[in-house]
């Protein structure tokens, strides 16, 4: 249902795309620059070079200067939105839910990756570990990525709760099931920890395995897959002028056109964008409440 609702909005938006009149464009040019925060999923220095061509494309489409910056973390991006220092931010689902609650920022666009508007977390173990089921992990160790991460903690943690093996939440990540839970500080560190045999399992995004070399990937296997997580997206500050927000969404959706897709690879290598709203992330919010990230 959520998906269908999103589709209706997207279609209406695509059908209603109208170029802004020239006078409005001239006025917009004189306005203050639009400020966009990028979260460093990758090396921040590399990201600056990476996003520049896409930013130039958006400046042209919006006829307005864009000031962009790479934040230190999701937390700084949310602070920037809250303090009025950023109008737009790229963001992952759980930080968005917390940001929405704290600042009123709202999701406007979702990514398409590998043809999907969602992704999943997986529980990986070494093939030679003898671990065949989730239950075999009782009393063992697991590496997640970060406590405030959808695919890097909340969703893989939920896998064990749903399987009836653990009873946890943010305050009790071991959930009476694991001997030890680690937060490795990054997807690569988490997947490398299980690959290296330093932990018994890793609960990470399904794409984390691609951070290993091909030969290495074959030494791991997924034990379980989480529920679907709505993909990473773009959020707008509640202070952002609705007209600017509308035009920004319009410009971003233009990236889906074949002639503009070359710019997409500068935006985290995504394949395209669809319009979303806060409702898209409702399942994430529900789970965040369930596990103590949000007050009920």
């Amino acid at each position: 249902m959520r998906f269908v609702a999103r589709i209706v909005i997207l279609t209406a938006l695509l059908a209603g795309m109208i170029a802004a009149p020239a006078t409005a464009r001239a006025a917009a040019k004189e306005q203050a620059p639009l400020r966009i925060a990028f979260i460093p999923y990758e090396n921040p220095e590399q990201l600056i070079d990476n996003v520049r061509p896409a930013v130039r494309f958006l400046e042209k489409r919006l006829d307005r200067k864009i000031k962009f910056f790479i934040t230190l973390s999701y937390s700084s991006a949310v602070e920037a939105l809250n303090a009025g220092k950023a109008d737009i931010s790229f963001m992952s689902p759980l930080p968005y839910i917390l940001a929405n609650k704290q600042t009123g920022a709202e999701a406007i666009l979702g990514e398409i990756y590998r043809g999907k508007s969602y992704y999943q977390a997986k529980i990986f173990v070494r093939k030679d570990s003898g671990i065949k089921t989730l239950a075999d992990l009782k009393g063992k160790s697991i590496a997640y990525v970060d406590p405030i991460s959808s695919s890097g903690f909340m969703y893989p943690h939920d896998v064990f709760i749903r399987a009836g093996l653990a009873k946890g939440g943010l305050g009790k990540p071991e959930g009476g099931f694991f001997r030890r839970v680690y937060f490795a500080g990054g997807d690569e560190q988490a997947i490398r920890s299980v690959f290296g045999g330093f932990v018994d399992a890793a609960g990470v995004s399904e794409y984390s395995i691609n951070l290993l070399k091909q030969k290495e990937r074959d030494e791991l296997m997924p034990l379980a897959t989480s529920l679907r997580i709505p993909s990473h997206g773009v959020v707008a500050s509640k202070r952002l002028d609705p007209e600017v927000r509308r035009r920004f969404v319009e410009a971003m959706l233009e990236l889906n056109k074949p002639e503009n897709r070359k710019y997409l690879r500068y935006l985290y290598g995504t394949e395209g964008y669809i319009q979303v709203n806060h409702g898209t992330y409702k399942p994430v919010a529900d789970m965040a409440r369930k596990y103590g990230f949000l007050k009920k």
């Binding site: 937390s75 949310v78 602070e79 917390l98 940001a99 406590p147 405030i148 943010l170």
Partner: peptide, 8 residues
């Protein structure tokens, strides 16, 4: 983790 503006 500092969470997000204290949350989490």
């Amino acid at each position: 983790t500092p969470g997000v503006l204290g949350a989490g």
